[in-house]
Design a protein around this nucleic acid. Structure first.
Lengths: 198, 198, 198, 198
DNA sequence: TATGAATGAGGTTTCATTCAT
DNA sequence: AATGAATGAAACCTCATTCAT
């Protein structure tokens, strides 16, 4: 009885910890953020954090996986909307960009994680599996002579760098909604020109 | 001449420290590398490190500046060879890429540094001053209608990302000297197509 | 009652740390006493000390406040026994002296602290508040023409120095209980003569 | 030739070191003052300090002895002016007080030194020898029934505490020259009353 | 599940002192 | 006599992690 009331109040402590970790990791870096500070920010006891994550590294990786899945969902769900390659390609471009712009902290965390020594700890499989969705799409585009006849991995790498640089440009200054949209469209055209079969 | 004699006797401890720091930072990250290990690797006493750099952070930033100047020299000296923009542009592209390939640790260190919280500590001026050489070149290209009529900063950002992604591709697998050259040339063509005035 | 049981099981580590700190600070001085030695002497881990006191300085000040309150209690509780000034004055004199003789280490620590740069860190208020009990008593004595018509602060300062010098004399050699009592009584007479309204 | 010129410019580095040490020790304490800072303040090289004083402790003690002699001279030279005890006593009182007021840093250093563990390192003889001048004078006063029939050591201790407390009072606030003189005279009367044979 | 006092290894930095010049 | 780069022991403090409650 009283319990049902409590249930409504109950907040998932694990979620609180992840949120706190994201915020602090992004602001102070992995090593600049003690677990005690994370617990404090999350409003839980120091030891509680270690109930959910055996070690600090576990938390770092766990948070990465969490965010990574989120990004995957945001882009992959859309990918299936069309069966043609070109619009799929555009969808990935645009949705990744918007997701990044709407989840700056999370996007930044992904960067942070990738260059950290933690990145080595995550199984390459897990990463590749997610990347392969895109790589396969590109490979198909090459095979069907819709895209340049160069290695799919090269296009994949350039494509992602392209995305990242546009993201950087968009966040380097204040743009209106319209300007932003225009830039995204223009840069998408450029990107497609870069990769399309001429 | 007297100097050459001195050089053999006198070992520059500061240089030894920088070399050791680069090696270890790249391998274990900033926080994974205790100053004691750096001193040990450099073959100097722990205190000596702090004789040259007041704090560990000072060393991190000092090393960055050192490498950054090196890269600047490697590219800027070449840039003046021609007075035309197009070959200058190509020179920067190619020399940066070769410098990166020949100085992988240093290039990796620059990445590491840029996403670290240390990056904030360096005066933006110092960075901008070096970047502006390139940004100005691009701006000139735009003005002379040799390049696309989009913001110079956008081209600058995309250009560097492009460089980085090609570097990543070249180091992701073993290529022969010839293959490497061919890839560099082809990707330069692509890059130029991307930015040139159509 | 439950409490007495707990007392036997539970050892207050903070108390152990304070005791150890007092002993070592008095013997070796603030800087001659590493925090590691304090922890060791207290039988706790090094980190435990910093669990209770953020810094070594905090410990130094914390110990001072602790002892200072003890001394205050030892004298102020007695002070209220009489409503006349003269016996109150004598009470302070005698009880301070006895407290000092029975708590030599603590009394010495107070000296040590007062001339150290730490003294500046303690809020003057805290000190004044405790001193004002005595200063007010003296001011009252002056107003009622029981004491010399000179500034209360001067009497206060001289009074404390007097106390300190007698303490020094009493501890400079071995005196029997009787001799000690006689000296205290005689010097009290001298002190009173010094300050009383003639 | 040039040399004679240099001679005039030459400043005693040992003196510079002592001056710097006094200033810094008084401000930051013994342990708060690194030898490097002393050398810097003195305008000499780090190693130079260790030419004059084998260790830092040597410097601390050396500075103490220096100041102690200065104080001795300031008072003892005057002491011989009269052959009567009473004026001698007054002379010591007044000259010590004025010396302290005119040499606040040095006087403070003496306090600092006395409660420090360094005090133990100095031979008791050296101290006693200087103190005995005063103790003997007091003993003579007692023998000649000019002073109270209590131990000379007790009077000596109380006398010095008295001096110190008056010094403290005089420096606790801003007094005019006249006020100062009046306070010194009045407190001397009080002090003499305290010790004189009644 | 949740707590937070307790731990102690390990990190950064200081600094008295040495010594080759 | 004077220098200041070099040393390395030792200090303070942090923080991931454990565990009794």
């Amino acid at each position: 009885m009283d319990r049902s009331v409590t249930l409504y109040r109950h907040v998932d402590k694990q979620k609180l910890i992840l949120d706190a970790a994201l915020k602090l990791f992004v602001e102070y870096g992995f090593h600049g953020t003690p677990t005690s500070k994370i617990a404090q920010e999350a409003g839980v006891a120091n030891g509680t954090l270690f109930h959910y994550y055996k070690t600090k590294d576990d938390l770092v990786v766990g948070l990465y996986n969490e965010i990574r899945s989120e990004l995957s969902e945001a882009t992959s769900s859309i990918t299936h909307e069309s069966e043609f390659i070109t619009p799929k390609f555009k969808n990935i471009f645009i949705h990744t960009l918007y997701w990044a712009l709407n989840n700056k902290e999370k996007f930044y965390y992904l960067q942070q994680f990738h260059i950290s020594p933690h990145a080595a700890k995550i199984s390459n499989e897990a990463i590749l599996q997610q990347d392969q969705v895109q790589t396969k799409l590109i490979a198909e585009g090459i095979r069907k002579k819709l895209m340049r006849q160069i290695p799919a991995e090269l296009i994949f790498t350039m494509f992602n760098s392209q995305l990242f640089s546009i993201y950087q440009y968009l966040t380097s200054a204040e743009f209106t909604q319209e300007e932003q949209e225009r830039i995204i469209n223009e840069t998408y055209q450029m990107t497609w020109e870069l990769f399309k079969y001429n």
